[in-house]
Design a protein around this nucleic acid. Structure first.
Lengths: 200, 200
DNA sequence: TTTTCTCCTTGACTATCGTCAAGAAAGTTT
DNA sequence: AAACTTTCTTGACGATAGTCAAGGAGAAAA
């Protein structure tokens, strides 16, 4: 998919992200270049369908991905992953159980995909990646703790205002139907919240 | 606080928990016995007050602890930690930032407390603890992901029914005021939900 | 340009929630 | 036992959310 000169450039955002935590050696970079894959996934396609087993670990180079839960035939959106985010269904990926949620691309995406086999091979071969995965996972945990806090401590309207502050870019790139799911309300309610807020 | 014979017994639940992930060596057990502390904390006391920096990592041997967020003078309960749970404000503990939430004992508790210094010393000295902390943190992350899912996919009444199934013991040990917070509703609403549910 | 499709809004109605206030019920203390 | 405290319930009312249905705005396709 990439010539010799292109792949390194394509993975640059991933290297930048990892280097900020712990400087990678040339050997580590080469291993990733050789064993991780840069893939293009079209808008609307699924990275993982709910109820299936997660086979890959992803890093978003370009694009937007939503996480959703299937509920009575519908797909309720729970979270979004944009540039420089890792995507994994940890429970399914690690335990090889059917995933409770799925991932769908909301835009044409460019991702780094790392298979289970390669993930474990890297962890086995390069001890530094223990620290990296730990760090990545810690950030994910903190993010989820804060997300739970918004449900416990804020009303739907306050969560919308909070969203405006924390992720103004999401409003530009993600439709209100999906944002409503993230806020835990129906699209109609979000529309009315926006109406109320606009009046002040 | 403990004679030579008592401390090992007191920490047995922690060793059991860790052994189930990766068998501890005698040296590792001895190090924990020498550097981790078994403490008794009275009902109502705080393990960590919101806005302060987390100094310790805890394991619950006996008792119940609630996690809360301060909101406009009130304390909104977000989660509970009972026997065989680890308690940590990861963000505050790791980054030494003021914690957004606090922890309060709801019963007289017996806990293992491990200080920051000892935590890092253990991680440095015994590589096995990388796996252990990673495993513990992964479980915590999965738990939070599933908790977010209950807010996205379920109504307050459905969350209450879900709570009955998943944690029937909580209803015996935790008052409805605190459980209401966990469900994201007021105590009055929880009371009415229980009334509705009882009629069927 | 017209048609079609997707996305967003609005209306009407019902159900549920939050709030404030009062009152039971249960458990403690004196 | 009586007084007190804590916990839980109930009532009344206004605000907000869910649901079903219809309609409008804009983008993409014909």
């Amino acid at each position: 998919m990439f010539g010799d000169m292109e792949a390194p450039q394509a993975m640059a955002p991933l290297f930048d992200y990892l280097n900020a935590i712990a400087e990678l050696s040339q050997e580590e970079r080469d291993y990733l270049l050789a064993h991780a894959e840069v893939i293009e996934v079209a808008k609307g396609e699924y990275l993982l369908e709910a109820e299936k087993c997660s086979k890959d670990f992803y890093f978003v180079i370009q694009g937007a991905v939503r996480m959703y839960y299937p509920v009575e035939g519908e797909e309720k959106t729970a979270f979004f992953y944009l540039e420089n985010s890792f995507i994994s269904s940890y429970e399914s990926f690690l335990k090889q159980t059917p995933a409770r949620h799925g991932f769908q691309c909301l835009e044409n995406c460019r991702l780094v995909a790392i298979s289970r086999a390669v993930t474990f091979e890297i962890l086995d071969r390069f001890p530094k990646f223990d620290l990296l995965t730990w760090s990545i996972q810690t950030e994910e945990l903190i993010m989820y703790q804060n997300l739970v806090a918004t449900f416990i401590t804020l009303s739907p309207e306050q969560r919308y205002l909070h969203l405006l502050q924390e992720h103004p870019d999401w409003l530009q790139r993600i439709n209100l139907h999906h944002l409503a799911g993230y806020l835990g309300v129906t699209p109609e309610t979000l529309s009315r919240i926006r109406h109320r807020v606009a009046l002040r």
